[in-house]
């Protein structure tokens, strides 16, 4: 697992300072999308070998939510961005 994460606010920190929430590429379905779609969204996850895009919380640092793109094969971290700022269209 990637052991060093470069937080856009705090710099390079060990993974122990972070809490991983999960897949950041999911899109919340419409309220009336139907039980199958919702079941899929809430419970079903694929676990691909390779690239993952996840929400990480810098819980022992700046307490910001980040989006971390990492590779589970090479352990390389491709990008770390601030989730809220990315969503708002601003740079971290």
């Amino acid at each position: 697992m990637a052991s060093l994460i470069t937080c856009p606010h705090c710099g390079q920190r060990p993974k122990e300072e972070f809490t991983i929430k999960g897949d950041a590429s999911l899109t919340r379905p419409a309220p009336d999308a139907g039980p199958d779609v919702w079941y899929d969204y809430v419970y079903l996850r694929s676990n691909p070998k390779g690239l993952h895009k996840e929400y990480w919380h810098h819980s022992s640092g700046c307490r910001r939510w980040l989006i971390v793109e990492r590779d589970t094969v090479t352990h390389k971290v491709h990008s770390v961005t601030d989730a809220a700022l990315t969503k708002l269209g601003g740079a971290a």
Binding site: C10, G11, E16, E17, S60, G61, R63
Partner: peptide, 10 residues
């Protein structure tokens, strides 16, 4: 400055 962990203490 840095907000970090010292052992397990924030």
């Amino acid at each position: 400055t840095a907000t970090t962990l010292f052992g397990h203490i924030s």
